[in-house]
Nucleic acid binder design. Structure first.
Lengths: 338, 338
DNA sequence: GACGCGAATTGAAACGATTTAACGGGAGGC
DNA sequence: GCCTCCCGTTAAATCGTTTCAATTCGCGTC
């Protein structure tokens, strides 16, 4: 059972002390060539694998970071995860991925486990606005980077996108294309991102000299395709159908689109649609989707870099707040009908 | 710095020994009510968090499993991951997610790190058919479940879908709809899943009394949307365009579809398309995609259950080979043109 | 009143690595 | 030939838990 092989066995076989084996592993330069070769040979022969928990216990630092997101089945978050993994990988770290499913309870359970693992840091898109979980984590000595959420609280780094501007971009575009009767499909307004996108949308209306309350808001329970279909049906059922829809993310937009296509509503002829995130599938949709792009992979990468940087030099660390600008990608779904 | 709080501090504050604190943590029933309350109060007051590495070092077992997949941005694998996480979560375990990107080198690096972490087990869709990495892992004492790959080797569990039958289903359907000039778009044939789906496709042709070599094969370098577009362009450029296309996964199919729609080729009028995986976005595509469904979430869940089961009772463990049947989901993209 | 018993608690020995101060021995300077 | 110095190596302490044999204590039994 080679799993039982420890540094001690290697030392015995190589005829050196365990301290020397440790040096071969961690500071190969201080050990003589001859010795190093013997030790490496012994490691090879025994199939020795370093026990990371022992290392971690002694040094106090883990080689992993946690990533807590609401939902990995959302391609936006997989892209973020990829970015985070890229950066972590470069630093020889692993990523522990956790889904909170928008449940505070699940989130807290995950955070507890991550704290027990003594992870190097945590990247999190918190379930709700309350800075509570962040504070608890910091109290436990874990450094935290808020993902896709600008930290109002000053005690953590954050990497985010200016969603308010994103909302404004979307509405400005729809207005410019000549759409007048606008509505927004959004997930729970308890989610900060949704609120901000809505605020941005209203900003645009105000700037255009229109009544921000003229924007109808269709709020659904989740931010996935199924909820999008639900929203689509509600829009269909309503009186006075809007001629353009801004959806708080692409999954919602795809759901709405599906319902519209099925119901024979021409998009963008009778109804223009703008999504948010610009996931890969937006371009491949029934009608290629206009969307507000977030640099998701960079978001994840930057966040991971921040969290790794913070714990490496906690003394002189000052919290950064990185805000990426969103960008409108125009495709078929929002064109003016001619 | 509450991160420095150890069981010893708790013991001191509560006025008991560290053994008792450990008992409160792990076997609360053996300690007297009064004592338990004191200890819990001390834990609360100090903000004590158990150090998992120390626990792990002592007990030898980690509370995490590794999941190594080619690409999490493929929704099929996120679904698998969700299933695995569900099962792991139930057992109080975490999932460490790793992307191999179809690179054997990346895969091996991840496996090395997972072995060092002494993870409870590893779920893996190996980069290539070689059972080598699996063997290495087992040698290191880590139990392994092959995901989406039937183990020809008998030394590991496997959870998979019968891709050969999946390929047959797809082609039978296309033939039944009256398509005659068939082609298959596939990722690298070094990927076993691709080969099996192709074999199944040929089976169907033979069974229908047709020449299996009449099936044109378009092989591209990766299994994502971009490669699908590439395949689409090659199909367009070729002479004698097929009237039906079986794609080795939905991402390829979506890419092809995008190109066809843009080029004005009517789907399914001039070209029928069948995908594979039935990811959520298949139904929301430009033309709702007929696809061979895999029970992806169940796949992940079952695999996680197996790996947890194996290490919990390694003595009497016998390797299971779970094979789920695929299922054809018919939508617009493959209908016979009338 | 001695004894045994069970329940609750304690103390100490692991687990497998890293780290640091001490050590040995050969080279070089005087 | 002796003293230093330096390089490579070693021995031992340590990290924070779990676990198990040993201990204490109160109490009922004979």
């Amino acid at each position: 059972m080679s799993s039982a092989v420890s540094i001690k066995d290697v030392a015995a076989l190589a005829g050196v002390s365990i301290g020397t084996v440790s040096n071969v592993l961690n500071r190969p330069d201080v050990v003589a060539d001859e010795t190093r070769r013997k030790v490496l040979a012994a490691i090879e022969e025994l199939g020795f694998v370093r026990n990371e928990s022992a290392r971690q216990l002694r040094t106090g630092t883990a080689r992993a970071i946690g990533l807590v997101v609401p939902d990995v089945s959302n391609p936006f978050f997989t892209d973020v995860a990829r970015g985070a993994e890229d950066a972590a990988s470069d630093a020889g770290h692993m990523v522990i991925l956790c889904n909170s499913d928008e449940s505070e309870q699940r989130q807290d359970r995950h955070l507890q486990l991550l704290a027990e693992q003594r992870v190097h840091g945590v990247l999190i898109t918190p379930v709700d606005a309350a800075p509570e979980p962040v504070r608890r984590l910091r109290d436990r000595g874990v450094s935290v980077v808020l993902l896709d959420r600008h930290a109002d609280v000053a005690d953590a780094c954050s990497v985010s996108v200016d969603h308010r501007i994103g909302g404004t971009l979307a509405i400005n575009h729809l207005l410019a294309e000549g759409h007048r009767e606008l509505a927004m499909v959004t997930g729970p307004l308890s989610i900060a991102q949704c609120r901000q996108r809505l605020d941005g949308a209203r900003d645009a209306l105000v700037a255009a000299g229109r009544d921000p309350d003229g924007l109808r808001v269709v709020e659904v329970a989740a931010m996935n395709v199924a909820s999008g279909r639900n929203a689509g049906e509600r829009v269909l059922a309503g009186t006075r159908r809007p001629d353009a829809l801004f959806c708080a993310n692409d999954l919602l937009a795809l759901g709405v689109l599906q319902v519209m296509v099925r119901a024979g509503v021409r998009v963008p002829g009778e109804l223009a649609i703008v999504g948010y995130d610009d996931i890969d599938f937006a371009a491949a949709a029934a009608v290629p989707l206009t969307s507000v792009r977030q640099p998701s992979r960079s978001l994840g990468r930057r966040a991971a870099e921040l969290v790794l940087g913070e714990t490496n030099s906690p003394r002189e660390h000052v919290h950064h707040h990185v805000v990426f600008p969103p960008e409108l990608v125009v495709r078929e779904s929002s064109r003016r009908f001619r």
